[in-house]
Amino acid sequence: MIDTLLQFAAVTCLAIGAFFTLVGAIGLLKFDTPMKRLHAPTMVSTLGVGAFLVASIIDSFATGSGSLREILIMAFLFVTAPISANFIAKVHMHRADCNRPPRPGSRIWATYDTDEADQPAEEAA
């Protein structure tokens, strides 16, 4: 009984993960501007792989040898996904692949601040 329930939960997680992975890839292919395309993969790495990892944890408990190590991958992806997205957004801005954002008050955005190239550019990732 419990076994069947666990299997059902794992299969549901697999379905959710597969669906969101596919939707993320479709979004990456479909949209027309680089900045819009940047939005699609964030959900691949959050819900898509997250659901696969939950399925893996449930399955490992269902088959007896329980393990929680998948949480590590999930935590790692959750910490690094914003940083890579941030870097790619900076690349888009740097190469002018998107329309120029409005100025922040009287300051300028750090990516356009190329005069002081020897300063560390990324304060917050």
Binding site: P34, L38, F52, I88
Partner: peptide, 22 residues
């Protein structure tokens, strides 16, 4: 654009991780 290629490569890595887990 160059950023698109990097983004696609990044997404492919995440998908590959999903495949390994599966």
């Amino acid at each position: 654009s160059m950023g698109d290629r990097v983004l696609a490569l990044d997404t492919m890595t995440v998908n590959a991780i999903a495949l390994i887990i599966l």
